[in-house]
């Protein structure tokens, strides 16, 4: 994908936002082109299926937040929305092809905020 702007990003660094444009850090883009990246920060429940973004923050109670973080859903985690509706299913994607799927009830999904890649 030629229109992808490669940006070096490391875990722990603030995500680089690029509205409507994919800005992933890899040679082989995982975001399926412009428009597949989340345009701006919004709750997980507002995402469209197939959109990819980075977790920016959660507004949950400490127990639920700690559980999600331990499951890998923490700030800067790269996620793809696989299914909207009860449950919201997301894929937490990592380098090397590794990924895991997490199902979330609406009451939790609406408190997970996703920003652009």
């Amino acid at each position: 994908m030629s229109d992808v702007v490669p940006i070096k990003s490391k875990a722990g660094q603030a995500p680089v936002a690029s509205v409507g444009t994919c800005a992933c850090s890899h040679d082989r883009c995982a975001c399926d082109g412009p428009g597949r990246s989340v345009p701006s920060e919004s709750p997980l429940t507002k995402l469209e299926i197939g959109q990819i973004g980075l977790v920016t923050r959660t507004t949950l109670g400490s127990d639920d937040e700690a559980l999600l973080r331990a499951m890998g859903l923490r700030p800067n985690a790269r996620v793809r929305l696989c299914q909207a509706g009860e449950p919201w299913i997301i894929e937490v994607r990592r380098t090397g092809g590794a990924c895991s799927r997490i199902g979330l009830a609406r009451a939790i999904a609406q408190h997970v905020h996703i920003g652009p890649v």
Binding site: A11, C82, R94, R101
Partner: peptide, 24 residues
């Protein structure tokens, strides 16, 4: 995250697991 970044080989997957998506 840093340990993983250091040992993971290859890029993030570009494909989507459509079979798992459909089954889910």
């Amino acid at each position: 995250d840093d340990v993983f970044a250091a040992v993971a080989l290859g890029d993030e997957r570009a494909d989507t697991d459509t079979l798992t998506d459909r089954l889910d």
